[in-house]
């Protein structure tokens, strides 16, 4: 990570642009989201601080501030702002953040793990039964929603604990974290179905 601006030598908070002289830096597509935000890789982060950084950095890279500086400058601003927004989208979402950490530590991908344990799949089938049979807003549906939310919080807590401090690259614990993330997808999908069914049309 470069820490000094190649143009004016000032210290850099983000590799996208220099806060001191305003110059936009050229970045690879694959730039690390944590790096973009000037943060160390970690699961826990201060969301208020993340938002403040987003605002601060957006002021450096938003195309509006380059409107009269020619196509090239605008294109670079568009690109850097897109990178910033992409990194924010990833970091601000707990599941995506965890997914990124597991991947960058060399853990298994979603597909590497194969199918979920039988007991869990049985549970999912029960949810689906309720989702299909219980009317929206019914007690059974509300009960399921509560359970799913609890379940999700529980998974999040486990994942957070397992990722703090960060395991060593390739550590065995990464497989368990991945399994937790996969389980969370099932929970999120079921929750999305509940909110879709109760949405006003």
């Amino acid at each position: 990570m470069s820490t000094a601006c190649p143009s004016c030598g000032a210290g850099l908070e983000t590799p996208l642009a220099c806060g001191a002289c305003g110059v936009l830096m050229l970045q690879e597509d694959a730039v690390c989201p944590f790096e973009v935000f000037g943060l160390k890789e970690a699961f826990h982060l201060d969301t208020g601080d993340l938002r403040a950084r987003l605002r601060r950095f957006t002021r450096l890279v938003h195309p509006d501030f380059f409107a009269l500086e020619g196509e090239e400058a605008i294109a670079r601003a568009e690109r850097n702002n897109a990178l910033l927004n992409e990194a924010y989208g990833l970091l601000s979402d707990e599941a995506r953040r965890a997914d990124r950490l597991v991947s960058s530590l060399g853990g298994p991908t979603e597909k590497d793990l194969g199918s979920m344990p039988q007991a869990f799949l049985m549970e999912v089938m029960e949810w689906n039964e309720t989702l299909e049979e219980a009317p929206p807003g019914s007690d059974a549906m509300l009960q399921l929603e509560r359970e799913l939310n609890e379940h999700r919080d529980q998974i999040s807590e486990q994942i957070g604990a397992a990722l703090t401090p960060l395991p060593q690259p390739g550590d065995e614990s990464l497989a368990a974290i991945r399994q937790g993330l996969n389980a969370r997808r099932y929970v999120d999908r079921a929750l999305a179905r509940i909110s879709a069914s109760s949405a006003p049309s």
Binding site: R55, T58, R59, H62, D64, F65
Partner: peptide
């Protein structure tokens, strides 16, 4: 007001 931002007059306003 936004035109003023684009003319380089101000970075006070930022539309995200």
């Amino acid at each position: 007001a936004q035109a003023e931002v684009l003319m380089g007059g101000s970075r006070d306003i930022l539309l995200m």
